[in-house]
Write a protein that binds this DNA or RNA. Sequence first.
DNA 1: GAGTGGTAGTATCCATTAGATACTGGAAAA
DNA 2: TTTTCCAGTATCTAATGGATACTACCACTC
Lengths: 130, 130
Amino acid sequence: MLQRPDPFNAQCPTRRVLDRIGDKWAVLILILLEHETLRFNELRRRIQAISQKMLSQTLKSLERDGLIRREAFPTVPVTVEYSLTELGRTLAVTVDSLRIWAETHIGTVEAAQRRYDRGAEPDLAETASR
Amino acid sequence: MLQRPDPFNAQCPTRRVLDRIGDKWAVLILILLEHETLRFNELRRRIQAISQKMLSQTLKSLERDGLIRREAFPTVPVTVEYSLTELGRTLAVTVDSLRIWAETHIGTVEAAQRRYDRGAEPDLAETASR
DNA sequence: GAGTGGTAGTATCCATTAGATACTGGAAAA
DNA sequence: TTTTCCAGTATCTAATGGATACTACCACTC
């Protein structure tokens, strides 16, 4: 390893990986595939408001990164199954903790948003001096 | 709580929260602020290739969500410090595990990409039949 | 036997978004 | 005196995301 990973350097590969992970559709797909194998249109129905194009694109990227496996069965019409690879499984666990965080703290976040939108200081009227 | 959180429903608030979290700039900012308080231009220098506009926008969203705190000091020129709130700190820990995942598995991901780009099956030449 | 719906996508176009660039205004450094 | 820094905003353009239509084949309904 030539230099230690630095995701804040735009050229560093870990940055590219983080950018991929930090993608809303990728996150949702990983979470969904964590517990079951799903087909293209099943994924589409589950992830509301995703377009076919984005689903197709995101699946392709995830496959390229070795995170998911695509298997096509020569049925009529063709059947395509998507599942996590071992690598993908390790990431899915991590990513799922984001979902858990969101579900746990959604109330606090929404309260903060209301406070902010009501037009004032988020916590205290603090504009300290130096 | 009227219904259980479902991030796959486009209307569910947890989905909106996940979308916010699943944002590459937000992820990087949270990781950076986990261990220190930083000012606007310091953040900009650290996060390579972020534009002022996106930094400004992302900071505003994170502040609105109650994840970071913005403090302005009436110096000349004005000094603005950004730090995590308690809520933000809980998220930063989770998000940082993404960075750790990326740094740990970057080699495997890059190998998978090379294999994929070399034009063939990612793992085995498997096109099973049914 | 015509129409509808399902399979897994691709192609195209347009709206939204991200990014590049220039600008603010006052002070300090070169 | 020109440049630099602070923390942004404003504007314009390039890239991206999303809506829609289409493929080709088959099953099912009417």
